[in-house]
C-alpha cells in the first residue's frame, strides 16, 4: 500500500511500489492527462510535480511519492485559470496536444522559480520536453505571455 496525495486528494494504492508513478496515476487513479512518451525520461510527456518539484513520472517509482503531494495537469487549475493555461490558449500552442501536459508542468516550475524568465531560462527549463509537432516557438511566446500576465497581477 502506497499512500500519498494527488491534486490535494488523499489516495491509498495497492500497487507494486516499483511501479512507475506514471502508470499508477494513469491506470490506478484514472488521471490520464499525464502521458507516456518514452519511458526513459527522455521526452518529458510524463512530467508531474512531487512536493512542488518537476519529476518524470515514467521513471519515478510510486514509492517515491509515499507521504508526499503529487500535482498533475488535472490539478494545475480546476478551471483553466492558471496563467500558463490562459497563455497557451491565447497563443494557440497545442497541435496534437500529446506533449502539452508535460510542457505545462515544466513551465509551471520555471515560472515559480523565475517569474520573469529570459529565453535562456526557458531553454534551461524546457529542453527536456520534446514536441514532435514543433510547438516550441509558441511555447516560448506563451511562457513570456504568462509571465507578463503574472507581473501585471492578472493572475495569481
Amino acid at each position: 500500500m502506497v499512500s500519498f496525495s494527488v491534486n490535494k486528494r488523499r489516495v491509498n494504492l495497492d500497487v507494486d511500489p516499483s511501479t512507475p508513478l506514471l502508470w499508477a496515476l494513469r491506470e490506478n487513479l484514472g488521471l490520464t492527462g499525464t502521458k507516456y512518451g518514452c519511458g526513459i525520461a527522455q521526452c518529458g510527456a510524463c512530467t508531474v510535480h512531487l512536493n512542488g518539484e518537476a519529476i518524470r513520472s515514467c521513471v519515478a517509482p510510486v514509492s517515491r511519492a509515499a507521504g508526499k503531494e503529487v500535482t498533475t495537469i488535472e490539478g494545475l487549475s480546476s478551471d483553466l485559470s492558471h496563467p500558463l493555461q490562459r497563455a497557451w490558449i491565447a497563443e494557440d500552442v497545442p497541435q496534437c496536444g500529446y506533449c502539452q501536459s508535460g510542457q505545462l508542468m515544466s513551465a509551471a516550475l520555471l515560472l515559480r522559480e523565475k517569474p520573469q524568465p529570459t529565453d535562456e531560462d526557458i531553454d534551461e527549463a524546457m529542453t527536456g520536453n520534446i514536441c514532435r509537432c514543433g510547438t516550441y516557438p509558441r511555447i516560448r511566446k506563451a511562457i513570456h505571455r504568462a509571465a507578463g500576465m503574472m507581473a501585471k497581477g492578472e493572475a495569481r
Partner: peptide, 19 residues
C-alpha cells in the same frame, strides 16, 4: 541542456531529481 544550477542540482524544471 541540463545546467549545474545554483546548488549543483540543476535549475527550475530540469533539476537532477527531475529524472
Amino acid at each position: 541542456n541540463v545546467r549545474r544550477g545554483p546548488e549543483g542540482h540543476g535549475v527550475t524544471a530540469e533539476k537532477c531529481s527531475t529524472c
